[in-house]
Design a protein around this nucleic acid. Structure first.
Lengths: 357, 357
DNA sequence: CTGAAAGCGCTTACAG
DNA sequence: CTGAAAGCGCTTACAG
């Protein structure tokens, strides 16, 4: 990064070389029909002078900013940062900048966030919708990251299939009664996971779903879930739809004097950093966020390209995108249940370095 | 968001009203010397036609994009998302968009990320530097979020004072030998926290610092820290410099048969979501990220404004910014040590909703 | 293969 | 108080 004279413009390079700025533009963009020699000369001059294209000018001229917007429901959610990181990575590789917006709080915030981003001139949006919300036609190309059951240009993990894997894991461990623990009935992701879990457990295993949201509506946030009583009722498996719920379940069980995994197995979803550090480490499903991000960016690029050509074609009409598989990470929390454990992989040595600065 | 005709431009509004675009510009920006009536008429017309200013055109003309860049060392770090959220909030309120970049991995990535952002034409940067790195003069206004001991336009929590609070907390609980647990000697933040802890503990309390990074360099990531042996040596306090380390300590102690908090107290820093959900909940220090973000955005705005006026004045010359206080959140992990507990606030009922979607 | 010209939408001196 | 004009840096038909 040379300080000193400011980076040259095309016009300046053109003047210095005694050619037209159109030729400079063509040479630099590569599209041009410019002789090889001249092109080389121009490139060199540009490099020497530290030419940096003006995104503003280009945007004004072409109507494209080269920036996409990322709308997250609550950036501080432990999983979203990883999504943001993966998106930034993928977008960067595709030549896009990423403008962020936070839609937490009221549902209206999501609309507001989208509006802000559009006003800033983003070429398209990637949105992780708030629970229970739909992203309507916003007149701008968009890709959604949610659940395969969400309509529109949606890319996501195969939450259902993940649930199936986990259900089978519990079945293989020999559990007969499993409690499924979810937060909100409105969440597509949670519903998918619950559905998959049931399918994976199969007909023969008794299961019931505990909606923590309902409980909390009645007894307040952080209320007891009555899990120890469930153990007394014969439940030995506790499959939560995300890790923090799993941790809450684990803690409540332990406090109630239940030994995990000897008397009960506990599992989560998403493999957050701490999930492998608690005692016992939590069995969970890992999302392939890098792939999801790549697909989302790709889907969005396509949508942006299309929005140029065909006017007004419904994005929703696109063929559904293939859901991305999740990976089961078996850890000690489902390690050796009362029943003979059939599979157990102790994964992930402690690694707490991530938190460091 | 009306679909249909595209939003009008100033020129179109001007034409429709039979005035000049200069007048429209003046009326809409408010700076103008335009009669009240005309101004009102123009505003109304703009509103009716859904006028949206072209950021690209404005940027091209003024040389300002109204966008700031946020450079984070590792977005997936559990704390940074909260920083990102707070920054987005503050920036948004100040009329800025936020472009993100991720500088994880090699140290060169930080420079690369900064370069990408500058090329995109950001007006300034907020960077959370990688451990042990310095942000030199990059020819663009910048605000740093790190530690008060970092030179430059730096805003941060008062990590040292936080350490003092925690040290006093341990002292008040009657501990006589406290082990300080940190990861990296290169981290300004960690060094500040360690320094504060020592000061807060005072002369009479024995303490020693365990650098986990050193240990891991020798024995590999995730190696045992030998904490139970420390208890045998008389250590009753274990103060980690961030929550994930505290969790690791807690887990290792429990696995070693040590009862926390009866036989040993454990504390962390940062109050991550799960810190209140593990058993026992972890005593920690909460950063006031909202305030930090506001200050950072404000400091950056000032730097941007200055960069217009005075040419080339060193940003580093600015007077240091006041560090932001942290708040001690006392929980059960330091609840009742072997010694009589003098203070204990049970904070935060379970609240796991944050993870939901 | 190369150049002259127009124009994207705004803002900013400068006249009137 | 209002308008005409120039120009930010680029790209894109259109000529030559």
């Amino acid at each position: 990064m040379s300080v000193g004279r400011p980076p040259a413009t095309m016009t300046e390079i053109a003047a210095a070389l005694g050619v037209s700025s159109a030729t400079v533009s063509n040479a630099l963009s590569g599209k041009g029909r410019v002789s090889v020699e001249l092109s080389a000369k121009i490139r060199q001059a540009a490099a020497e002078r530290g030419y940096v294209p003006s995104h503003a000018a280009r945007a004004l001229r072409t109507g494209r900013t080269g920036v996409i917007g990322l709308v997250l429901p609550d950036i501080s959610n432990p999983l979203f940062p990883q999504i943001a990181q993966a998106i930034e990575q993928a977008a960067s590789a595709a030549g896009y900048g990423v403008l962020i917006a936070d839609s937490r709080g009221e549902i209206a915030q999501q609309t507001a966030a989208i509006g802000r981003l559009i006003e800033r001139g983003v070429d398209g949006l990637i949105v992780v919708p708030r629970r229970g919300s739909r992203v309507g036609d916003i007149g701008t190309p968009v890709a959604i990251i949610d659940s395969p059951s969400t309509p529109g240009n949606t890319v996501s993990s195969d939450h259902w299939e993940g649930g199936v894997q986990m259900g089978r894991h519990f079945a293989a461990l020999g559990h007969r009664k499993v409690l499924l623990i979810a937060q909100s009935r409105e969440s597509n992701v949670q519903n998918d996971r619950i559905g998959g879990l049931k399918a994976g457990l199969g007909q023969d295993i008794g299961c019931e779903t505990l909606w923590v949201g309902d409980l909390e509506a009645a007894h307040g946030a952080g209320c007891a879930l009555g899990l120890a009583a469930r153990v007394a009722d014969g439940f030995t498996g506790f499959a939560a739809v995300y890790d923090l719920l799993a941790l809450r379940a684990l803690t409540e069980l332990q406090r109630g004097g239940i030994d995990v995994p000897r008397q009960a197995s506990v599992s989560g979803f998403d493999d957050l950093v701490w999930s492998s550090v608690v005692m016992p480490p939590i069995t969970t499903l890992r999302q392939d966020l890098a792939t999801i991000a790549e697909r989302a960016v790709e889907a969005l690029s396509d949508a942006i390209a299309d929005s140029d050509t065909s006017t007004g074609e419904r994005m929703d009409a696109r063929p559904g995108l293939e859901p991305v598989p999740m990976t089961l990470v078996a850890r000690q929390s489902t390690g050796r249940a009362t029943m003979p454990a059939t599979r157990m992989v102790v994964a992930d040595a402690f690694d707490t370095r991530k938190d460091g600065r």
